[in-house]
Design a binder for these strands. Structure first.
Length: 891
DNA sequence: AGAATCACG
DNA sequence: ACGTACGTGATTCTG
């Protein structure tokens, strides 16, 4: 029989994490009496996940008792200087305990000891009694308890994301065993607990020392053998601190607890009390999880909310019941199974028209003139969830949707794209509506994904969806207004969704013949290279396996490993490039990899997705990226090779619809740098763009202090180009040095020169970070937002990342805004001029068209015009174009 | 399912 | 003292 399971939770630290995980929702989570409830709510959510995951027989939640503990006796400043627990959190703690009691879970605290020590003590008791122990905490200190039978789960980001520490994982992360971790902490100290450790010793050094000596004591026993150094001096000076640190860091696993293992067995849930508790806290979600009579629970994660909807099932014979007058609000939802709506099976549909819901699982009813007319009439405005999906789906039924004016998914994405889920249930939940079940729940996933046969289940699901689109519309529109995003929504995202639907439906023709020819060529080449590599290596192995490749290169052949990954040696391009001169096999591996990539991802990959019409129909994800860019899937048309000769061949397979037609390509020149010049207002850079200089050469002239761009060498230009890119990304000297393979010092010099020459760009960067700090988000020229909660992070790396993001997002995002506007104007132009040319692909700063022969002259003229005039800036936008009989030749 | 790698802007 | 460019998606191997 499997071991019994014991779950131990550090109540204070988890509540602390829970509180801050939903800190921004603090004022939204209040019960009628004004009590904050965000931590209680999140604690329960986390608890459900853990209980479900661990399925424990015994559970204990430990809390800290009072302020002073035995550690303060050893060290008066223990945890000194730590900010006080905010009142908004401490007021919730008693209720967390009440909730736990109602759930049949024991809590415990012990005078003079911290929750850590209680947990340590029970972990040992559990292990002794043959339990498998799981510890849940927000505090890494407890990882020292990890052992063969004890796993320590530490909250990562937020509270729902837990990292499991086993002794093995500990070793990977810190390089030491769990018990050695105590010694490591003794040396490095702990800022949050306010004890210092040894001067100049951080995690890296501490880990290294403990790996060498095993413990603090042993280190000091052998310190005389250490050769004289600053480190040795510091170690000797701070010996007391290290020894004290060890005492403080050690969890007391032998506290005088007054309860035993039998006292913490899970008891039955008291549903009556629990119901009253949820009511008091106004937790509608949890209430809905309780069955009506409240004496038994559904399983813990189920979200059956049993909202019984009123609706009318439509048939051929009762369509007359529907009357739509102009000005009526029509909500529409079209259900399809799975993400790929170009092919997905239809599930059914629902309308809500003047307070009544009409629905059916038979989508062919939509082809009836009456319903079709509703969907196609521009003057009848429709509200949906996912305009593009709905439009493409209807198109497959021969219905050309017009008049969709509101898209709940798009609205929600603009308001806050931190959670970019396209699951309607999840979107609803963000706005406090728990009525909609998730599709995953209703339809299942993978092999068992299917349409519910029970009409009640399916119809209830469809009905809740149209209902929720209507219910939340006002809230979402108000938010958009508050964010000054009405225009972004109505004049950019909604129209561009319509344009994208057209593009996806058109697709682009891909010639399978061209690809199969390449397939044969590459297969021969791969075979040849494979053989050479095996000969060189002296054995056959899987070149695609980084593990096997690493073994051959670094163990068998004894090459120098330059970089390591979590799982072994890195064999990435930059590593191999550095080893190129050591052995001819390296070059062969690089070529092999390159061709193998093209073969599998592009040749085979594309052949797999060519539809019956000889075309590929990608899906542009409009509500995914953090910056406002599109992404493309199934297939991804935004990363078709262009950088290598072999890769570029793939583009020859992309051809116009008509054999004598053209693929026309037009791309913005330096759009991100132009946006930077615009938003920073930098005079020097604006001037460069106005005069039409080669911007990288201009930058080279500036940072290398030359008189004229004529003096710029190709190397200088290359370096200047890298600096320009770096600036857009939120540069660091390290990043630039790595990119250019130069010293950090030299990189820093370039950057300093750059800022000297373009002073307003530095100002922009500072302002961008300041803006994000004050407002909590970054914003594009069209008011697209990206929230940056990490801008306030304590952790330097996390915070720095957010700062670079604050700099980059307005640039990347504004460029995305601009091309979206261009696309809308472009589609309108094509329509107005009644052209047969189709816009088929967007690649961030580039638009691709499928052009009939006799329209090429027109297209040549209008596409660059439309792109260049999408917005009016202080500097010109420039778009370059080219065309040919396939994508390869269109440059 | 996650990591590693590499394709694009 | 720290570790580091910004966005994405597909394939392959591996536990």
């Amino acid at each position: 029989m499997a071991n019994q399971k014991l779950l131990l939770i550090d109540g204070n630290s988890v509540a602390f994490r829970a509180f801050y995980a939903l800190y921004r929702q603090l004022e939204n989570f209040r019960n009628p009496e004004g009590l904050h409830t965000n931590a209680i709510y999140t604690f329960k959510n986390m608890l459900d996940v853990v209980l479900n995951n661990v399925q424990p027989d015994h559970v204990l939640v430990a809390f800290d008792a009072g302020k002073t503990t035995f550690r303060n006796k050893m060290y008066a400043d223990y945890k000194g200087g730590r900010q006080k627990t905010p009142g908004e959190l401490s007021e919730q703690l008693p209720y967390v305990q009440e909730l736990l009691h109602d759930l049949g879970i024991s809590t415990y605290e012990l005078e003079n000891y911290e929750a850590d020590d209680i947990i340590g003590t029970f972990a040992k008791i559990g292990e002794k009694n043959g339990f498998d122990v799981t510890v849940v905490t927000g505090d890494k200190d407890l990882t020292q308890l990890a052992s063969e039978h004890t796993t320590v789960m530490v909250t990562k980001s937020g509270v729902m994301n837990l990292e499991s520490y086993t002794p093995e994982h500990m070793k990977e992360v810190n390089g030491v065993t769990p018990t050695e971790f105590i010694d490591m902490k003794a040396l490095m100290g702990d800022n949050s607990d306010n004890y210092p450790g040894v001067t100049k010793v951080g995690p890296k050094k501490a880990s290294q020392l403990i790996q060498e000596y095993g413990s603090v004591e042993n280190l000091y026993d052998h310190i005389d053998d250490m050769k004289a150094s600053k480190l040795k001096e510091n170690l000797l000076n701070d010996k007391d601190k290290a020894l004290l640190g060890k005492k403080l860091a050690t969890i007391n696993c032998d506290t005088p607890v007054t309860i035993g293992i039998d006292d913490i067995k899970r008891r039955p849930v008291d549903y009556q009390k629990l119901r009253r508790f949820y009511e008091k806290m106004n937790f509608r979600k949890f209430l809905s999880e309780l069955t009506p009579d409240g004496d038994s629970s559904k399983n813990e994660t189920s979200q059956d909310s049993h909202v019984k909807m009123e609706y009318t099932e439509l048939t051929k014979n009762n369509l007359a019941k529907i009357t739509v007058n102009e000005g009526d609000e029509v909500i529409f939802y079209l259900g399809m199974l799975g993400p790929n709506y170009h092919l997905a099976e239809f599930v059914g549909f629902a309308f809500k028209i003047s307070k009544q819901i009409f629905l059916s699982r038979d989508v062919t009813l939509l082809q009836d003139a009456k319903l079709k007319q509703i969907l196609e009439n521009k003057k009848i405005s429709k509200d949906v969830f996912d305009l593009k999906r709905t439009t493409v789906g209807l198109n497959r039924l021969g219905i050309h949707a017009h008049g969709i004016e509101y898209d709940m998914l798009l609205a929600s994405y603009l308001i806050n794209n931190e959670n970019n889920s396209d699951d309607m249930a999840e979107v609803c939940r963000m706005y406090g509506n728990d009525t909609v079940r998730s599709d995953l729940d209703v339809y299942g996933k993978g092999k068992s994904e299917k349409i519910p046969t029970d009409d009640d289940v399916l119809y209830n699901h469809l009905a809740t969806k149209v209902e929720a689109i209507e219910t939340l519309k006002e809230t979402l529109l108000a938010k958009l207004k508050e964010h000054e995003q009405d225009d972004l929504f109505a004049s950019i995202e909604i129209p561009v969704a319509r344009v994208l639907a057209i593009m996806e439906i058109n697709g682009i023709k891909v010639q399978a013949d061209t690809l199969t020819e390449l397939q044969d060529e590459f297969a021969v080449e791969l075979k040849k290279m494979e053989k050479q590599i095996y000969d060189e290596a002296g054995e056959e192995f899987n070149i695609n396996s980084p593990k096997q490749l690493g073994h051959i290169l670094f163990e068998k052949m004894g090459l120098k490993p330059i970089k390591k990954t979590k799982t072994g040696y890195s064999t990435s391009v930059d590593v191999l490039n550095q080893l190129k001169d050591e052995n001819p096999i390296i070059g062969q591996i690089l070529s092999y990899r390159q061709i193998a990539k093209i073969q599998s991802t592009y040749v085979n990959g594309l052949l797999d997705v060519i539809q019956k019409d000889g075309r590929v129909h990608t899906r542009y994800l409009q509500t995914l990226t953090a910056t406002g860019r599109l992404s493309s899937v199934d297939p991804n048309l935004q990363n078709i090779p262009t950088r290598t000769e072999e890769g570029k061949q793939i583009r020859k397979a992309f051809v116009p619809s008509e054999p004598d037609g053209y693929i026309f390509s037009c791309d913005y020149s330096q759009i991100e740098l132009r946006v930077l010049a615009q938003v920073s207002g930098d005079e020097q850079m604006q001037e460069a763009f106005r005069t039409g200089y080669d911007i990288h050469a201009h930058t080279a002239m500036k940072i290398f202090h030359l008189k004229s761009t004529d003096d710029v060498t190709p190397l200088m230009r290359r370096r200047a180009k890298a600096v320009n890119f770096g600036i857009v990304y939120g540069i660091s000297d390290y990043g630039l040095s790595k990119n250019l393979n130069i010293s950090r010092k030299q990189a820093k010099e370039f950057i300093d020169n750059y800022f000297e020459q373009y002073p307003q760009i530095r100002e922009y960067m500072d302002k961008a970070v300041k803006f994000a700090r004050e407002k909590g988000y970054a914003e594009t020229i069209m008011h697209r937002r990206r929230y940056l909660p990490d801008i306030h992070a304590k952790n330097y790396n996390v915070r720095s990342f957010a700062e670079r993001t604050a700099i980059n997002s307005p640039i990347q995002g504004s460029a995305a805004d601009i091309i979206k506007i261009a696309m809308i104007n472009m589609q309108k132009k094509l329509n107005d001029l009644h052209l047969k040319t189709k816009m088929v692909v967007q690649v961030h700063d580039e638009l691709i068209f499928d052009v009939p022969k006799d329209e090429i002259e027109t297209i040549k003229k209008i596409v660059p015009e439309v792109m260049q005039s999408a917005v009016t800036l202080d500097i010109p936008l420039v778009a370059d174009s080219g065309y040919g009989h396939n994508w390869f030749d269109a440059k």
